[in-house]
Simulated scan of single mutants.
Amino acid sequence: MFEIRIICDPADTGRVTDALSEAFTVGPVRQHPTRDGQRKRLYVTADHRTNTRPWPGPDEAYTLAPSIIREITWTADQAATKPFGTRLPRDFWLRKAALLDRIALQEEPQSSGAGAADIATEAAERLMHLDDATVICDPRAYVRQQYAHWIKHQ
């Protein structure tokens, strides 16, 4: 547990306390005026938030996703239109990893060996490396979480 002190404009206090509540488990926010009376001092006791939300499953993560054929086309177009050696943006790697995960999910019930699942895991690990992710989880679950967040904000 730790104490946070923030000095901000009075108009920003609501936005600041909302952001703190999203980032940490917080107690009541105590407000005091600054010495000059122009700003507010906010004091809050906080603790690190544990990730209590479950990782989204494939159905939840890919509900808003375009068709697999459309994603294959988009991914191929993005890779083909960039000059060789051009660094592709994160969205490309996220969408590619999600596409490969979706393909692997269709194959998994009838597959007994390596194949699409291994390729999907490699793409997911590449995304985690690109993101410098420090979470310990199934790489494909990480892709689903990131994709679900990304697609909702598009």
Score class of each variant (00 low, 15 high):
K40S: 13
D91S: 12
Q110P: 00
G37T: 03
W55Q: 01
E60H: 08
L105V: 00
A80C: 07
K96C: 01
I151P: 00
G57D: 15
A148G: 01
T81S: 12
E122W: 08
R95P: 05
Q31W: 03
A80D: 14
G85Y: 12
D91A: 09
I103R: 02
W74P: 00
V44L: 14
V29W: 11
T73P: 00
L42Q: 08
T17M: 13
E122Y: 10
I72A: 02
L94K: 03
A11L: 11
D101S: 04
I6Y: 01
A141T: 05
D131H: 06
P139Y: 04
A65P: 00
P10R: 10
A46I: 12
L130V: 07
A23L: 15
W55D: 04
P139F: 08
I136R: 13
G14E: 14
C8I: 10
R87F: 03
D131Q: 13
V16M: 09
V143Q: 02
F2P: 01
H32I: 06
P109N: 15
Q154V: 06
T45A: 08
Q106C: 07
Y147V: 04
F92I: 10
A123D: 07
G113I: 06
R95W: 04
A116Q: 06
A98K: 00
D138S: 07
D118V: 12
S112I: 14
S112F: 14
R87G: 01
A76I: 12
V26P: 01
R90I: 11
A120L: 07
K82Q: 13
S67C: 04
L100W: 08
H129P: 00
S21W: 02
V143A: 04
D131S: 02
A141P: 01
K152W: 08
A80K: 09
P66Q: 07
I6D: 05
I136V: 15
E125Y: 04
T45N: 13
D9P: 05
Q106M: 13
Y147R: 01
L99Q: 05
P54M: 03
M1I: 04
P28D: 13
D9Q: 13
P83I: 05
D47S: 15
I7Q: 10
G85K: 10
W55H: 02
V44T: 10
L105S: 03
T63A: 15
E125A: 03
V143P: 02
R49C: 03
D12S: 15
A141Y: 00
T134I: 10
K82V: 11
E22V: 09
G85A: 09
R126H: 14
D12A: 15
K82L: 10
F24I: 10
Q78P: 02
I4H: 00
L99I: 02
D47V: 11
R140T: 14
T17F: 12
G115T: 12
D77K: 09
L20Q: 08
I72E: 11
D12H: 09
S21R: 14
